[in-house]
Design a binder for these strands. Sequence first.
DNA 1: CAGTGGTCTAGACCACGAA
DNA 2: TCGTGGTCTAGACCACTGC
Lengths: 252, 252
Amino acid sequence: MQPEYPLPVDLFDTLDKASPIPLYYQLATALEQAIRDERVPPGSRLENEISLGNRLGLSRPTVRRALQELVDKGLLVRRRGIGTQVVHGRVTRNVELTSLYEDLGQSGQTPTTRVIAYELGTADDTAATELGVAVGAPVLHLTRLRCADGVPLAVLENTLPEDFTDITREELEARGLYQLMKARGVSIRVANQRIGARAASAVEGELLEIRKGSPLLTMSRTAFDNSGRAVEYGQHVYRPDLYSFELTLVDR
Amino acid sequence: MQPEYPLPVDLFDTLDKASPIPLYYQLATALEQAIRDERVPPGSRLENEISLGNRLGLSRPTVRRALQELVDKGLLVRRRGIGTQVVHGRVTRNVELTSLYEDLGQSGQTPTTRVIAYELGTADDTAATELGVAVGAPVLHLTRLRCADGVPLAVLENTLPEDFTDITREELEARGLYQLMKARGVSIRVANQRIGARAASAVEGELLEIRKGSPLLTMSRTAFDNSGRAVEYGQHVYRPDLYSFELTLVDR
DNA sequence: CAGTGGTCTAGACCACGAA
DNA sequence: TCGTGGTCTAGACCACTGC
């Protein structure tokens, strides 16, 4: 069996039992950073959870919860009777429940938005089904062009329920949609997405500065807030040379 | 506050404490089925976890774990001080760690496979990086055409490490790759995927019976087994009119 | 056999939201 | 003030692995 890798104790000096941040989260974050920095090498076998808990002054369930977080992110692999190992190979980021606007900002690009259409209308069949409102109910229709460092990247079409009609064009050009919704006390908890591809229409080609008929990456999404209500339906298209989706799948 | 929805007790008659199947899993499965069948209506508020545990003869952590499974799947939403609610709106399936072959079978279609290329070769730069082997190391290169009910659906290119060279063309035409690997004692635990789009090449167009230059949905994936070793690198292209990816994102 | 992770219990205290 | 979920503890038994 592979010998266990002694986790540097100083990794966990940052654990603060008085902090409002949960202990399992503090531990998971510290360990994740150590793995990403390769201070804990790929493939190495970690110390068992009981002994780790003793060294850290944490109970076993707390340690387990921290490790499970990293298993779910695809960074660790555990086997009964064997132990816990760091996955070989590059660790990648993941599709998360963030907006494109924030994603771009975090990857060092400057996002800008142009509002193409902004209209109070009524829900068509698709929008009504996705948002769980009646056909013909008042909704807000948005079409935005999102650019990164000035290069057109995506056309974002969204339908929102009536209570977001106080969002202005100016706000939409300055911030991401999720930020604006959050500022109104609505935070997104769950989203169902479908990712596909199709050819660009003439209008899409013009907006994205590509030829009509070229491939587009498509994503349609319905998002729900923390009470389970549908608060957004979107149909987005992306330039595939500039954007793609990354995700990590874990068997559990 | 919304009144709580009394979970039908008979839903949980199937709980079997003697079964080797974990109790939290039995409960999660039973409840998921009840939600999908709308025996528990969308938006309804569930009974609190303590009382649920008492009624079922389970401890609170066990009940919590079952509920958390469904939160992670996007079926439930929980709020402190409020309670647990079923998400509104359609419940969708998810991208899971299964092969296309199994996916098609489960959705009632008949998958078939034609092996286009089968060669023992050496790892190029990309494959070596992804699989974590040396450049020039012996690997198995596969190209397969996957059809559903006789209609060409995807071209699957894969690179496997040396120890899978006993997989035959005949096996590949009869089963999915993951099934063959599992039969050899290798089960896939983690996979990193990137989903994008591009135009079809002439060869791809011919295989998939579409025009050269039409849009393709692309997926590249590196998969790891339960010891964290990379066991597969694949570059797949799909006909976007016949295939798309569904996923559920949850904020945690 | 000894060591590992997987499951389960019984209870405690806390933070948040609603009444 | 009360009920809810969120966190944490201390311990138990089991299943699987490798020696």
